[in-house]
């Protein structure tokens, strides 16, 4: 771990040029690409998620770190061998029908990517039918549903119901989140999990996948 200390620090601070330089250094030193990703970048983003959950950093800082990671990945991705990348799992994510809130969902998507998930972002105002259709197409491990208004929350159980009817509810885990959403609500509508913020959403997603 300590091998990537400088890289981790640069990513958590969102220092793009330093992080890119550190990544290059690690590549030049002949390190395993997968190790740089897992023990460097993903470890850094874990820390970022924790800090965000605690409140010591906020949205702009988290975005900056995510951007930093993306820049580093640009160097690493071409070097990955076929089958080398072991995605932590596939996620489809979207904000429910009638709701146009974007930012929270984007943060979760970014942090999921940062944690090594393969994320398909369906955008906002996503109907239950669209969730089902995409789920059938992508065959995700996790369906992440966001709602920011108490008036649009009922679209969450509707979406879960639609997954049920399409016969794919058992094949996916459903995680929900958004300002008015609570853990209790997640239980009520029989979602599998609830993420209080972008950091904990990732932690919960990992739990659902049996990794942590």
């Amino acid at each position: 771990m300590s091998e990537f200390k400088a890289l981790i620090e640069a990513v958590t601070k969102g220092d793009i040029s330093k992080a890119v330089a550190e990544t290059q250094k690690a590549i030049d030193a002949g390190g395993f690409i997968q190790a740089i990703i897992d023990e460097g970048l993903i470890a850094a983003m874990d820390e970022v998620g924790d800090n965000f959950s605690k409140g010591t950093i906020f949205v702009p800082q988290m975005l900056r770190s995510a951007k930093t990671m993306q820049e580093c990945m640009k160097l690493l991705e071409p070097l990955l061998k076929e089958g080398d990348t072991s995605s932590k799992g596939k996620v489809i994510i979207g904000t429910v029908k009638g709701d146009l809130h974007d930012i929270g969902k984007n943060l979760v998507a970014m942090m999921m990517e940062g944690a090594g998930f393969t994320v398909t972002d369906l955008g906002v105002d996503v109907s239950p039918e669209k969730f089902v259709q995409k789920a059938q197409e992508v065959e995700p491990d996790i369906v992440a549903i966001s709602a920011l208004l108490s008036t649009t929350m009922p679209a969450m159980p509707q979406t879960i119901e639609a997954l049920q009817k399409a016969g794919i509810r058992d094949k996916v885990k459903v995680i929900i989140g958004g300002a008015p959403v609570t853990a209790k609500y997640a239980q009520e509508i029989k979602a599998d999990s609830y993420g209080a913020d972008a950091g904990s959403a990732v932690t919960e997603a990992k739990k659902l996948m049996g990794i942590s």
Binding site: F58, V59, P60, L63, L100, H101, D102, I103, N106
Partner: peptide, 16 residues
């Protein structure tokens, strides 16, 4: 605002 793609960028810029 919610239908404007650039709103998020403005919003994030003004959080600090």
């Amino acid at each position: 605002l919610s239908s404007r793609l650039d709103f998020n960028q403005y919003f994030v810029e003004h959080i600090d």
